[in-house]
Design a protein around this nucleic acid. Sequence first.
DNA 1: CTAGTTGCAAAGAGTTTGCATGGCG
DNA 2: CGCCATGCAAACTCTTTGCAACTAG
Lengths: 137, 137
Amino acid sequence: MNRPENYNTKQRKAIMNYVAALNGEHITAGQIMKHFDEKNFLIGLSTIYRHLDRLVESGKMRKYTLDGVSGACYQYIIDEDIREYFHLKCEECGALLHLKCSMLDEIQQHVYEEHTFHINAMKTVFYGKCAECFNGD
Amino acid sequence: MNRPENYNTKQRKAIMNYVAALNGEHITAGQIMKHFDEKNFLIGLSTIYRHLDRLVESGKMRKYTLDGVSGACYQYIIDEDIREYFHLKCEECGALLHLKCSMLDEIQQHVYEEHTFHINAMKTVFYGKCAECFNGD
DNA sequence: CTAGTTGCAAAGAGTTTGCATGGCG
DNA sequence: CGCCATGCAAACTCTTTGCAACTAG
């Protein structure tokens, strides 16, 4: 095992608790920084970025860019079971839905056969509009 | 009318011709800059941004951000029947490939029918590994 | 001529990196 | 005590803005 040990520092605990408590709402690094600033909890911006990156890499969070939002958005994945599925992100209301259906295997298969590309479902996000936002236009 | 006159400068013509000739593929401001640099055509980055902004405002181009692509992407709208592509982004080498195939309509159709979600193909990026990087592992 | 346009430099916003110090285990 | 993590500052990337010089019409 060359997996590095995870040190359970104050900062790490604080960030983990905070993002897990967001109930799936997305957040930016700057917003997290601001939150801790206001509580007079000392933490460096780079520490926040470092933890967010780790969480994304381990599949516990997703990272997005949303048009009209400055900076990357991060979102904690509450249900561990849905990590391996594709996700649908509503560009309008920000809802994150997971997509689990028979066609996904087909898509992966197809893209592999026709384009020799191996899709990583965990990282892939479909953008678009959910039913409510689409009708509301 | 308070619409200002459009001066037909060298730079403006060069940019217009270039983006119109891209056949609907997206491009970043930096790529445009690089293109003209290589042709030893003097043009300022800010000039490029200014023209792109105008084109977006007048509805001739679309601006969006793609996960995994640094900087904003611009796409010239050829006609009302805009070409849409999905993108494949290699997590390893960073290559960005365009994906255009028969299955895309099916995917969109399926996701709409089964999940009432309207996919925005242009913005969606599949992550994974391209053939070279997959084999090289 | 003269008002819009240009290139440059500087300023901003978001993110990453190098490094000495600090603290978990 | 050994390492990883941390905060800070600096570096970097992308984009915007101010400005004096320039140029199309």
